[in-house]
Design a binder for these strands. Structure first.
Lengths: 341, 341
DNA sequence: ACAGTTTCTTGAAGCGTTTCAATAAACGTT
DNA sequence: AACGTTTATTGAAACGCTTCAAGAAACTGT
């Protein structure tokens, strides 16, 4: 009825005819153990199927062997979250760490972290969805809790990995320019988001460098319908042959809006997005987008945390490159018939 | 430098001038504590910001206060995963349980569970992605480990919650029928998936009951492009005015395929999907779909596990109803002009 | 005011590990 | 063969909490 009783270190010690201290030494790879003794112990471990209990290890060790991650409240909007998480978990497993999930309760973004810390719930934290001056960062830093951020933090002493949005957008602009597009517009987020500002900078910089007008910019919050509705104004003000969007959601909205105006996205007007959300490849036409290298980001964050937990003082602040995934929404060239210019 | 030292139960006991046993009694709400004593203790707890450490609680309790969930290897395909997880985590938090995440290593689906159990890593498991005769179910059952499944399990003694796919599809058929559609086709998965068979049964049953031809069925594995490519044959063989799909992915493919054939989905041919993945609302036209009540599922699973851990023998085997989300892909009526019949 | 009850509080053991000082065994020297 | 070294092993304390038998305090009723 009850879950099967697990063997303890004492059972192993008995079976091997040694003390529990010796078993512990073997398990933890301490140097001074004779070959013969080690063999006996390993055999007993094997026979009994022994594994040290995390709970029992934690107590004397003063650590939990857990990394914690707070699920964003708007999980449904964060499409790549599960992929990111998957990589964090996998990489953590390689380091014998497991991942603890917790969630925001009310509006307070810091509270759940504080609670977890008070209960000694985890050794370190992985954060995502970093804002300018994110309160969580200040909080954790003040308490000297190990943590690492997916997203840019202005403070150099904070470990963070971010996707180089500027360079990603620049790649999209290059791609479109090489297809012959001259009037490229950018659909961005409202000012004040670290990620959005960065991507916009990429557009402005690259467009300028290519001698294109970097002023073809329109802004909207990240919503499909708003993206759709901004198309008439976009066409009127900038008459673009290509639209670079700060996100896939907006890009898909723009594609719908183009079609509302009788233009076929991908043929009459090229469109690119950012994030490569699942819907990007499921759209018709499929959407050219920038994929964030989640595996790399997850691995870097975990590696940093492990180093930090091992005592090394290893601040990192890395920028990783997104991959341009070319699909049908940029399949035509700027010189194709439809718009006749 | 080091993470701030947390106060222990002993600190509280000292501050309140009582023994640690009393503090423990207060914290755990034991009955025989005098009001005045309780007040003193609570005050000390408040002042010091004390919270019992999970690690230290676990050891004598013989439980971890953790529920474990294994991230499916193909996380990227499981679109609603993060939503589901979010609800599981939230509900668990209400019960003072946290959620531990682990991942599949190689091909062996059972191995990670076995490993976690050997380390005494969690009190119970939440499973998803249940197959016919899922090996994990047999494994956990054999070891009498508490677990609860999202997905149907044939064994009545296993706690499971599933979404009523048959009834969901039936609702879609009803919806289309009420719009005047008479020739409704079903795009299903290949035989042999529990979920797919169930949804198909819903179509056949409902179509038959309405006096429609229940034989308009086509099958494909769950892939956008395959859904797209099956449209010509679908039109030729069944000439449907509406297509009910077993999944959103296939439905989106079908919509693309219809457009390839010069038909406008939502106007010329109605389309429905299942799962309400994010792409459903981002498609143009937006896709009518069936939303799985993830919150309910998550809550039920956690509630069962809590009951089970509390000693109650509470097997459940529930079916919850999906919600039909009507969108533009079923906006027209069967009598609208385009197809002229 | 005293014994008998009942209610509250506590000391100490124990949960499964790690760690470290102390002891034992093995090895070189002479 | 006895000694000093080095290497291997161990006993016991400690980690922060719960639990339970036992003791103390607060009430009864007389």
């Amino acid at each position: 009825m009850d879950p099967v009783k697990r063997p303890t270190i004492r059972d192993v010690a008995e079976a091997a005819g040694v003390s529990t201290a010796t078993v512990s030494n073997v398990v933890n790879g301490h140097p001074h153990v004779r070959g013969k003794t080690r063999a006996k112990v390993l055999e007993a471990i094997e026979k009994l199927g022994y594994r040290a209990s995390r709970a029992a290890k934690s107590l004397p060790a003063g650590r939990t062997f857990l990394l914690a991650y707070c699920l964003p409240a708007d999980a449904a909007r964060n499409f790549a979250l599960d992929v990111f998480l998957h990589h964090v978990v996998s990489r953590a497993a390689e380091e014998d760490l497991e991942v603890l999930l917790f969630a925001q309760k009310g509006g307070d973004r810091v509270r759940p972290y504080a609670e977890l810390i008070r209960r000694g719930g985890a050794d370190g934290f992985v954060l995502s969805g970093i804002d300018y001056r994110d309160p969580r960062v200040a909080f954790l830093q003040e308490r000297a809790i190990p943590f690492a951020c997916f997203g840019r933090v202005d403070d150099e002493s904070v470990a963070s990995v971010d996707v180089d949005g500027a360079s990603g957008i620049a790649a999209a602009v290059n791609h479109l320019h090489s297809l012959g597009h001259e009037r490229i517009a950018f659909v961005g987020w409202p000012e004040g988001s670290a990620t959005g500002d960065d991507r916009l900078a990429g557009f402005v910089g690259r467009a300028g460098a290519l001698g294109l007008d970097p002023g073809r910019v329109v802004r909207s919050i990240d919503d499909f319908d708003l993206g759709r509705k901004l198309v008439p104004a976009l066409l009127r003000d900038h008459d673009p042959t290509a639209v670079v969007s700060v996100s896939d959601t907006l890009a898909l909205g723009v594609m719908a809006g183009l079609r509302d105006e009788g233009l076929e996205p991908g043929r009459d007007v090229a469109v690119t997005g950012f994030d490569d959300i699942p819907a990007a490849s499921l759209a018709a036409p499929s959407l050219t987008s920038l994929r964030q290298p989640m595996e790399q980001v997850g691995a870097l964050l975990v590696e940093h945390l492990v180093a930090r937990l091992t005592g090394e003082d290893a601040p990192i602040s890395m920028l990783v490159q997104p991959d341009l995934i070319v699909r049908d929404s940029t399949a035509g060239t700027a010189r194709s018939p439809a718009r006749g210019d």
